[in-house]
Nucleic acid binder design. Structure first.
Lengths: 185, 185
DNA sequence: GAGATCATGTAACTAGTTACATGATTTT
DNA sequence: AAAATCATGTAACTAGTTACATGATCTC
């Protein structure tokens, strides 16, 4: 279960409330580990009970009060232990691949519009990643001035960018194949 | 919930027992939708109860008897309905990306060996995909002789191959980054 | 005053994982 | 006789999704 660990990493990078974590999971860390606010609040409560994280009530003038969480020593130890565990192969769940194979028993051309929409969503995501890269990793600094945390965030982001580019190319291949099957010679 | 639909597709491609389905989910369709035999038996029971699939007891001489499942009309209708639903964006869960960001709070170089092992697993997977492609899609047939089902299976496999190649390249980038951070100038 | 954003939760349900269990048949 | 493969399942637990619920504060 890596949601615990994803939250711990996010809180180590910067302490924050459940609400703030939920927003980070809509971008940044959430690009590689999805979670909703319901999940996050539940896990925060459990980790607080286990002493992995500390809470601090923060009164705010301009907004509702919040609870600010930060990582306690046992949480940090748990993260380190997890980091040294073997990396399990990811269990893939690729719904579009199943749909493409299902299309053999229906009209392949009928999928074209949905795949086009799906392709646009990935193109948007690539645009967002590239904007994030420009914003965070091409400042005026000379190479070598980034700290380890930034270097590691950057290599993860480069992975996201490579994934989106590969996906867009593959979706073009899918669309060409579907169109070809839809209008047979 | 696409496990239902993945099973329906697999049974349309070829009727079979729960055991046989479990083996197909270890390869072929399972490359894009993972499932264990426990999950499969549970879903088969439910779909049978709903009339989506038919069962036939098959006595076998050389092995234990089995139940052969095949898709019934309501199951096929359910699959078609699902196929016409909008494609939801995939929810990503990329544990390695979380670990890489976590490495900023530990020793980045300590991850190197695990990433190397992970890279080998992906290299093996690519080898298997390429072997499957050679076996199933480069026969003596002239282009255009494959049926729609085969063409669609091939484009899905090409996606898997593209994914593995992209992943291997990215893992090289990750390894270079980790090594650089482990031995700072 | 209405709608947006900030903030935190509960409840019910669905899906996925892990551990356990049994028995037939085949091969060594 | 033991180990491997074929075959089917149950039970308990963990994780994830969907729907519902409440209230503060801010902006228009």
């Amino acid at each position: 279960m890596a949601l615990d660990h994803a939250i711990l990493v996010s809180l180590l990078e910067k302490p924050g409330s459940g609400y703030e974590l939920a927003r980070r999971f809509d971008r940044s860390i959430g690009y590689f580990w999805a979670a909703t606010h319901q999940q996050i609040y539940r896990v925060l409560k459990r980790m607080e009970g286990d002493g992995w994280i500390d809470v601090r009530e923060v009164a705010q003038d301009d907004r509702p009060d919040k609870k600010e969480y930060s990582v306690a020593a046992p949480g940090r130890a748990a993260l380190t232990a997890w980091l040294h565990e073997p990396i399990e192969p990811e269990t893939v769940r690729h719904e579009l691949a199943v749909k493409i194979r299902a299309a053999a028993f229906d009209d392949p051309a009928a999928l074209v519009h949905e795949v086009e929409r799906y392709r646009r969503a990935h193109a948007d995501r690539l645009t967002r990643y590239l904007a994030g890269e420009r914003r965070d990793f091409t400042g005026p600094e000379a190479p070598g001035t980034l700290d380890a945390g930034q270097e590691l965030q950057h290599v993860v982001l480069r992975g996201g960018i490579a994934y989106e580019r590969m996906t867009l190319d593959w979706l073009d291949d899918v669309l060409a194949t579907l169109r070809r099957l839809g209008s047979p010679r």
